[in-house]
């Protein structure tokens, strides 16, 4: 996808999104000055550990954060579903936002066990949004729901549709969750750790399914995960989050061949690789992810960073574009120069 198309056809454009939440111990700086754009048919992989703010960001895009938990919010979330004009979701009243969720943007959560209502038949859960948003009658909606189940690879959909969630396996449930999310053909799909609760063979099936559906519907997708492997071969762009900020953002291949941020590099090197021989010493990142309650100044990764210098502890590095590229950005004063993916990992 070329860059002009990216600019002209952005389904979602996030500018300086900042979210702070109230908690028992103080204000949590969950998302700080996050910006990115996402075009039709593209996948953005968001990678981060727990507490990196990736889930809070996803929920805030959908307007799903409880209002009373919000201490402060700023920035723009400009959403453009095809015929409609661009609109800023941050300014939109809840009532209007509700009409977008479902037909325009949808979300898949981590746990398929809790994402479905255990006391309702699949038919009810699948047809709900079809009837509400698309105004279908009962028969139409049911037919479409069966088609949807078949499309997400559920065998014998005509019988399955009258079952309850507990009669399905975890992988099947996640397929149903995807079918519900896609029922109204949204332009944007946010998948928050969609395969974390699933086994590795099921994970592959679900990721393949998402890739296929995305191709067919030309959806924009945000794929959130803690696993670099999940996004590595499935995302067009990857954003690495740490302590509420995007620390590096690049096209997938560029990221792996020329990572700039020490955290990206450290994360990549700390993962055991299937191609390495046994007992390969892992390069562990010392320390642990920082607290987001009233964070100190400076780069959040500095205390764990092997390249950190005095400046890193004082100033917060701004996000800058790598010279010679237009889509590789990072937030580091002393970016990594070598391509660590090519290095040997021997001690």
């Amino acid at each position: 996808m070329t860059d002009d198309r990216l600019n002209s056809q952005s389904v979602l454009r996030v500018e300086d999104l900042t979210i702070r939440l109230n908690s028992g111990a103080g204000t949590v700086h969950a998302v700080e000055a996050v910006s990115f754009a996402l075009a039709r048919g593209q996948t953005l992989g968001v990678v981060g550990e727990s507490g990196s703010g990736k889930s809070v960001m996803a929920r805030s895009l959908m307007g799903l954060l409880p209002r009373r938990a919000m201490a402060y919010k700023a920035g723009k979330v400009v959403f453009q579903a095809d015929p409609a004009p661009a609109q800023d979701l941050m300014q939109m009243p809840e009532k209007q936002l509700r009409h977008l969720r479902g037909p325009a943007m949808a979300m898949i959560f981590q746990d398929p066990m809790t994402a479905l209502n255990p006391v309702l038949r699949l038919s009810v859960q699948l047809t709900e949004s079809l009837r509400q948003h698309l105004g279908m009658d009962r028969q139409q909606a049911r037919r479409r729901a069966i088609d949807l189940l078949a499309a997400v690879g559920i065998p014998d959909a005509g019988r399955r549709i009258d079952q309850f969630p507990h009669q399905l396996s975890g992988g099947m449930r996640q397929r149903v969750v995807i079918a519900i999310a896609l029922a109204c053909n949204p332009s944007l799909l946010i998948a928050d750790e969609p395969t974390t609760a699933l086994d590795v063979t099921v994970q592959k099936q679900i990721l393949d399914l998402l890739a296929r559906l995305q191709r067919e519907h030309q959806m924009a997708m945000i794929l959130i995960t803690h696993d670099l492997g999940v996004v590595a071969s499935r995302a067009d762009h990857i954003a690495v989050m740490y302590a509420g900020r995007i620390v590096e953002h690049a096209p997938a291949k560029t990221l792996f061949s020329a990572m700039k941020h020490p955290y990206t590099e450290a994360l990549f090197n700390s993962i055991p690789r299937i191609n390495d021989p046994s007992h390969t010493r892992l390069q562990a990142i010392p320390g642990r992810p920082p607290q987001l309650v009233e964070p100190a100044s400076g780069c959040a990764f500095a205390p764990r960073c092997q390249y950190a210098q005095a400046r890193c502890l004082e100033q917060t590095p701004p996000i800058v574009t790598v010279p010679g590229t237009n889509d590789h950005k990072h937030a580091c004063f002393f970016p990594v120069s070598a391509a660590p993916g090519q290095e040997s990992v021997d001690d």
Binding site: V200, K204, L207, D227, K253, N275
Partner: peptide
Amino acid sequence: RALLASIPDADPLAR
């Protein structure tokens, strides 16, 4: 074989 083939590898350049 199925298990091994299902693993998402963190290094897209490697495969």
